[in-house]
Amino acid sequence: MTKATVLTGITTTGTPHLGNYVGAIRPAIAASKNDNVAPFYFLADYHALIKCQEPDRVRQSSREIAATWLALGLDTSNAVFYRQSDVPEILELTWILTCVTAKGLMNRAHAYKAAVAENEQGDEKDPDKGVTMGLFSYPILMAADILMFKADKVPVGRDQIQHIEMARDIAARFNHIYGEHFTLPEAVVEEHGATLLGLDGRKMSKSYNNTIPLFEPEKKLRKLINKIKTNSLEPGEPKDPDTCTLFSIYKAFATQAEVAEIRQRYADGIGWGEMKQVLFEYINEHIAPARERYEALMQAPDHIEQQLQEGARKARAISVPFLKDLREAVGISRIAV
């Protein structure tokens, strides 16, 4: 049976938080153990440069993200886990694809249109002010990430569907000109995926500065959970769990039986201080073993690097010969003697 190739990239601009874990990391780790899937997971460090011009942050984020995935049990014997910048064929493919991509297609990219709209609303004379070519054309780099490894499926949020559609358009255009070389990828959207709320009740996101880092030390974890916004209902008053940030986080980790028990305690009027203590103890117990492994990995950068280099070796065993074929297809080859 042919394995389906599934590919996921993680941009190296921040520290993994609880929302990343339940929404993306946990299901991806599980998929890495599926013998019927060929998973590719990569640190998208070139993508990070689009919005982040802080070298130390990109380096530290790469280290933290790699350590997080390894600490949580990523099966690197099955999954190909690599750093984007360690596979130079991806950037060469990006240029090849750029040469068959219509500018009009890039004009329709959501991120670019949003930047232009913001400038126009701010009465800027130049609608492209602050727009780099990285921001404008990064859907092509994303297409190269996907097409290089002939990904069949790409798990994404709804806001990323357009990029998969663009990758399909670019691949189809190349195939039309140079022959069938690329697989047309499909976006996989998890309709019922967990979305955690942050400290302020909005979606947990580094953009809102409301996250709870996944492997925060115990004391800091407790302080952050104690900061979670709640309403003014007193202990003893019934509370609605479905509108509560504390409950939404607890539910993402707990079993159905445990969730039912806590739901009853809300009906009985559990106090906010008590619920925060319950949540802290539960989350802390859940992540403690992986946190210990994470802290050990952060002190062993050579081991992390070894894992990434091994992943790059496996990735390049695919990318090098494939790019050779693509070069031949577009007419870039040695002159025969």
Rank of each mutant, 00 (worst) to 15 (best):
T2W: 06
A4V: 08
V6N: 00
T8Q: 06
T12M: 01
G14N: 03
H17S: 01
G19H: 06
N20D: 02
P27H: 09
A31G: 02
S32M: 10
K33C: 11
A38V: 02
P39T: 04
P39F: 03
L43H: 07
Y46F: 14
H47W: 00
L49A: 03
R57M: 10
L72Y: 07
L74C: 08
D75M: 07
F81T: 05
R83S: 12
V87R: 06
E89W: 11
E89C: 11
I90D: 10
L93I: 11
L93R: 10
I96W: 12
K103C: 03
G104T: 10
V116I: 15
A117F: 08
G122A: 15
G122M: 08
V131N: 01
M133D: 00
Y138R: 05
Y138L: 04
Y138N: 04
M142R: 04
M142W: 05
D145E: 03
I146L: 05
L147T: 04
M148T: 14
F149E: 04
K150I: 01
A151R: 04
G157H: 04
Q160D: 09
H163V: 07
A167C: 11
R168F: 08
E180L: 01
H181F: 14
F182W: 04
F182S: 05
P185V: 07
A187S: 12
V188C: 08
E191Q: 12
E191R: 10
T195A: 12
L199A: 02
L199G: 00
R202M: 11
K203M: 06
M204T: 09
N210M: 10
I212A: 05
P213H: 08
K219Q: 13
L224H: 03
K229A: 04
T230M: 02
N231Y: 00
N231Q: 01
E237N: 11
E237A: 15
D240K: 07
T245N: 11
T245L: 08
S248Y: 11
A257S: 15
D268T: 03
G269Y: 08
G271I: 14
M275G: 03
V278R: 09
I283D: 12
I283Y: 12
N284D: 15
E285C: 03
E285M: 05
E285L: 06
R291N: 11
E295Q: 02
E295D: 05
A296N: 01
A296L: 02
L297E: 01
L297M: 00
P301N: 11
H303W: 08
Q306K: 12
A317R: 06
S319D: 03
D325M: 10
D325K: 15
R327M: 14
G331H: 06
S333P: 03
V337A: 14
V337N: 13
